[in-house]
Simulated assay, not measured.
Amino acid sequence: MSADFASSQGNFPNVRLRRLRQSPIIRNLVRETELNINDFVLPLFVKQGVNRRDPISSMPGHFQLSPDNLSAEIRELESLGISSVILFGIPGGKDAHASDSYSDNGIIQQATRIIKDVSPNMLVISDICCCEYTDHGHCGVIEERDGKKDVCNDRTLEILALQAESHAKAGVDILAPSGMMDGQVVVLRQALDLSNYQHIPILSYAVKYSSGLYGPFRQAAEGTPLFGDRKSYQMDPANANEALREAAQDIAEGADMIMVKPAHTYLDVIHRIKQKFPEIPMAAYHVSGEFAMIKAAAERGWINERQVALEVLTSIKRAGADIIINYFAKDLAKFL
């Protein structure tokens, strides 16, 4: 090798970065980002009924479970080392005001009691929203103004407060408001504190985009809007500065943790928020469409599912997420 070439390459040949990549043991030793099963939260879909384990066609390996089938599911999760779940409910009946969501015998309330009976230490997070419980599929109370239908922010907050109190009473450990209503965190915090649930944390979906990647979830949760869309309350995918404002507002209102949803397609947003608020625990939701794309490509033999899932979830953690809500948790628990 000529001296001129060597000098043009900076510190080469003295510095050879490939030295730290030459064996699995060395690569593991110097790895900067490590996934851990304790980082994962598994979503569960609980549907009113008996003896139901209905496959979700767009989400292979996931099911709508009736409450009587929850016990076996929770025991399996315990055996895999999974200690946290987030619940989404499909009630037996829906109405305009999401009544099942705040009924003491609602589907989430039933599910929580069953889980806590089977596994008192299983961490239960409940989604606080209206879309699965309303007969129109939107995330709140509908009002009509100037001939147009839209979600009424402040009337919806009243329902979310009732949900929060009811879920807390049932034994939920963490409440996760996801409706993107202005003021939802402070209203929930006040309602919880007044009902002597000061100890229950709020994990706010602070930054939830109006994404095209929620399709499989809406099938699973049976919450597709019957008219219009959710762009008047969920965020525009083109905006990142707005995400910082949303996160700052929810933190100021009392959120204990914040979330970005989706995750894989918003790594820049996760990173920016974590840099701005490093002290706040950060969750990211690797959503149903992101999961389904990997599953579909793997089924066709185009990619290695486990390798890609690990790569994607590692990238989410590398971007700044402390907690990853994801549908690969059971599969990766066996590997990790």
Rank of each mutant, 00 (worst) to 15 (best):
Y233N: 14
Y233D: 14
Y233S: 14
Y233G: 15
Y233Q: 14
Y233C: 15
Y233I: 15
Y233M: 13
Y233P: 15
Q234S: 09
Q234Y: 07
Q234V: 06
Q234N: 07
Q234A: 08
M235P: 00
D236K: 02
D236F: 04
D236W: 02
D236P: 00
D236T: 03
P237T: 05
P237G: 07
P237A: 06
P237F: 06
P237E: 05
P237V: 06
P237K: 05
P237D: 05
A238S: 14
A238L: 10
A238E: 09
A238Q: 10
A238R: 13
A238H: 10
A238N: 11
N239M: 09
N239V: 03
N239L: 10
N239E: 09
N239P: 02
N239I: 03
N239G: 06
N239S: 11
N239Q: 11
N239R: 09
A240R: 09
N241A: 12
N241Q: 11
N241Y: 12
N241F: 12
E242T: 13
E242R: 13
E242H: 12
E242S: 14
E242D: 14
E242A: 15
A243E: 09
A243I: 11
A243Y: 08
A243C: 11
L244Q: 07
L244H: 08
L244W: 08
L244P: 09
L244R: 06
R245D: 13
R245S: 13
R245N: 13
R245C: 12
R245A: 13
R245F: 12
R245M: 13
R245G: 12
E246Y: 14
E246S: 14
E246M: 13
E246T: 02
A247D: 05
A247R: 01
A247M: 07
A247W: 02
A247Y: 03
A247E: 07
A248T: 11
A248S: 15
A248M: 08
A248K: 15
A248P: 00
Q249L: 13
Q249A: 14
Q249H: 13
Q249Y: 10
D250V: 09
D250H: 13
D250T: 11
D250K: 08
I251C: 00
I251L: 07
I251A: 01
I251D: 03
A252D: 12
A252M: 08
A252H: 10
A252T: 09
A252L: 03
A252R: 14
A252W: 05
E253L: 00
E253I: 00
E253Y: 02
E253Q: 15
E253W: 03
E253D: 15
G254A: 02
G254R: 15
G254H: 13
G254V: 00
G254M: 01
A255G: 03
A255M: 01
A255F: 01
A255C: 03
A255Q: 01
A255I: 01
A255R: 01
A255N: 04
D256T: 01
D256S: 12
D256H: 14
D256F: 02
D256W: 00
M257P: 05
M257Q: 01
M257C: 06
M257I: 04
I258G: 02
I258S: 01
I258N: 00
I258M: 04
I258C: 06
I258T: 02
M259I: 08
M259D: 06
M259A: 10
M259R: 06
V260G: 05
V260F: 05
V260M: 03
V260H: 03
V260Y: 04
K261D: 09
K261M: 11
K261Y: 09
K261E: 10
K261T: 10
K261G: 12
P262G: 05
